[in-house]
Design a protein around this nucleic acid. Sequence first.
DNA 1: CCAAAAGTGTTGATATTACACCCATGT
DNA 2: ACATGGGTGTAATATCAACACTTTTGG
Lengths: 249, 249
Amino acid sequence: MCTPMKKTSTTVAQSDQVVKDPVQLVFTYPKVPLTVDCVIFGFEENKLKVLLIKSDLEIFKGQYSLLGDIVQDNEDLNEAAYRVLKQRTGMSDVFLEQVKVFGTPGRHPGGRVVTIAYCSLLNINHHELKIHDNDLDWYSVNAIKEMAFDHKQIVDECHAWLQKRIQEHPLGFNLLPEKFSLRELQNLYEAISGVSLDRRNFRKKFASMDLLIDINEMEQDVPHRPGKLYKFNFEKYAKSKRKWVGIDF
Amino acid sequence: MCTPMKKTSTTVAQSDQVVKDPVQLVFTYPKVPLTVDCVIFGFEENKLKVLLIKSDLEIFKGQYSLLGDIVQDNEDLNEAAYRVLKQRTGMSDVFLEQVKVFGTPGRHPGGRVVTIAYCSLLNINHHELKIHDNDLDWYSVNAIKEMAFDHKQIVDECHAWLQKRIQEHPLGFNLLPEKFSLRELQNLYEAISGVSLDRRNFRKKFASMDLLIDINEMEQDVPHRPGKLYKFNFEKYAKSKRKWVGIDF
DNA sequence: CCAAAAGTGTTGATATTACACCCATGT
DNA sequence: ACATGGGTGTAATATCAACACTTTTGG
């Protein structure tokens, strides 16, 4: 603990006593360092990638870690995650969601550090990495073997989270260019979920959802018959309520 | 910040410098009080209930709060949640899962406190509350209007989480007696999801899943035709893999 | 003309919904 | 006898999975 503290009572509040000064109460609480780690997924060359950087801890020499930072005093947790995202990628208008907290004692060699994992998805081509210090770059999710801290586990859990989430929400569109072909969309789904899908059924599915806008443009410079390009109808999606029925296990 | 600290650099690690002493590094991190709050759901009188206690903070006089406690030094987060559950209810063999972190500055009147919400489900009849100090008791989720801190929001998010989760996993069985009738099971699903279901279809659904064991017993002392009693086949469920297909939004 | 991917429909199987009557029990 | 909820089946519909050929472009 970093401050001298009077431990006047057990930490469980006593039942017959009213606490008049909450500040005093909180002052007695143990405190832990809190960080956020951003699992920033991107999509490139038909592969799901994640933004990693070489760890600057000697103990993890040669290993990669997620982009993380301390949660500042009085900084909102989401804000901290958005700040990291902004600092590291320059992007701000992307999806970002809290996934899970990791706080096993011993997960950080410097002592207890609790970290909140955030997941975000961004379009690799929309943002050219300005700096490649410490090998900051996109790495294929499938190729990751070992990471610093418990970051492999965090990536795995975020990947599982994403696989599930993308079934229910069209998150994937944040990973694609504004205009995309159905093939690109399918490649994305296949890359994230790791299974291959029937092309006709996939197209039918999206056609029936009526969330794609045909912009009457075609792919250019492809060495085969060019496909139509679409935009995602974010507006329409925002209005549609998620259906919610069925018991399914 | 609670300790004098040399701010020798920004908190973002410098790119060309190797950190040799992680302990030293972590020592410079700001620290926050961390708590767990347990949203303990139960089912009684065909209503979804949650275990609440009157807040012992004067500022929240008359309002209810969740069962929470500090995360101790070097205590695993899950363990902290299980400890709270055990301390407050005496139960240990129940489902418990991390749902979300709440850390908006200002959510606690005593200063910044970050809390991790855990959700657990238990059978009210399996555990008689030993103590009712501070009005510790089960309260109907639907009847909750106002709570201390941001606990109403936490309950709402956990309820939404549960509604979603129960579609995919048979969590509900933790809320029921070991032997239950199909009517009780359906009441549970209706209470959690807030919609009413067709009885025949509901029964058909569960019959087709083949996860219920007919124990050849009947309800007793009901003022109508007694229903058959079942047990849940946990073993079979554990073996069955969750299917996972479909894009559905 | 060849390679590569685009585009397109049908069918069978399965799952979902909606819906009504008789039965067993306690009062 | 009656009130209460238990127990049951079917038909219409929607969804899902499997599957093959023609078209367009670039090289």
